[in-house]
Design a protein around this nucleic acid. Sequence first.
DNA 1: GTCTATAGAACGATAGAC
DNA 2: GTCTATCGTTCTATAGAC
Lengths: 213, 213
Amino acid sequence: MTDATPSEADELPREAAILDHAARLFYERGYGTVGMRTIAEVVGVRASSLYHYFASKTDLLYQICLGVARDFIDELLPILSGPEPYAERMADFLRRHIELRWQRRHWISTAQQELRALAPDQAAEVAGLLRAYQRSVQAFIEQGAASGAFQVADPRLAGIALLDMVNGVNSWYRPAGARSLEEIATAYSGLAVYNLLGARRAGPPDAESSRAS
Amino acid sequence: MTDATPSEADELPREAAILDHAARLFYERGYGTVGMRTIAEVVGVRASSLYHYFASKTDLLYQICLGVARDFIDELLPILSGPEPYAERMADFLRRHIELRWQRRHWISTAQQELRALAPDQAAEVAGLLRAYQRSVQAFIEQGAASGAFQVADPRLAGIALLDMVNGVNSWYRPAGARSLEEIATAYSGLAVYNLLGARRAGPPDAESSRAS
DNA sequence: GTCTATAGAACGATAGAC
DNA sequence: GTCTATCGTTCTATAGAC
């Protein structure tokens, strides 16, 4: 820790600060509506200075999309490989997924909504990473269903339904609301694991005995 | 039926055709990235001609958002007031909701993603309509839970989870895929009603006896 | 590494002929 | 109702001084 922990984009190295400010603006106004002058103004430089760090506006977008896609893969997928029971791993994963999505909402929303502005090969690269993340979740659910931990007719469909459900949180959650994000994340992962995936509460995956209510 | 049924935007009255082409372009490229010249080119006129029908680019966006929000309210909410059991009404509603969302994907996506480009009062008007639609679904689930048709701990949360889940279909469904939209809509409404909302399969809402498996 | 200055194109919107 | 012509602005991106 050679520096004080930076909590604002302005305290980051300039290159990272530019990306963070750009992601925030793209999130708030849409990629097409935001000009390089606006990004530069928020960063505190002239527009031409941005081109010292990034080749073009689409390059900015590309770095944002690529970076956040890799972050989700690196930070969250390992949870699914832990030693805990399927239902517990899934619930942990979903809580972290929901919380990370909110923390990085400017980046992840940009990656999911503005890919169309990238060149085809760059868009395909990012889309591939996002798809790999989704498929890992689907594969985990398939394994859980095969092991009997999840009771679900169509694991692939349930997986995508589950992700769409939790991904919606960012569109309506507001910090000023009645519930904290942690409460929402816990309630949602419960809904997902016990209702949508049909996991049984408590007990090992192959237990047939206990049934509350 | 005084005219042949128009299936392309070009066969609609010009004003409607402009809106449909604009919605498609906004959907494909984002509001900020699409220029009035591009819209005009697709319609087959010069940019200045668009101003005979609409006052500005934001007016185009406003008409799109307002129109589709009203359509969903008028066409789908009546289903929830039918005489059928709660689970059946909900399943019907969700199937129709999923199918209408796909049919009108250019419009509804624009309404949900590009509201930020509208003037505050116009954005608030549209957001109010979309929120009213969502709240009607939540209220229906609350009634169903109170009547015992749905077994769900938090009806409000379940309602928003359910809508986020079905609203995700447009982001991954492709007509060339393995499953038809009708199959997906049926599978999804089953997941929503019987898993997420905990409705019991068949039998009247207050029956406590039958339990499959 | 940031600046001024600007090229060259595209933007939203308007005026006025037909 | 559609056109041509154009106004004034803004856009991405570059050149070159410091």
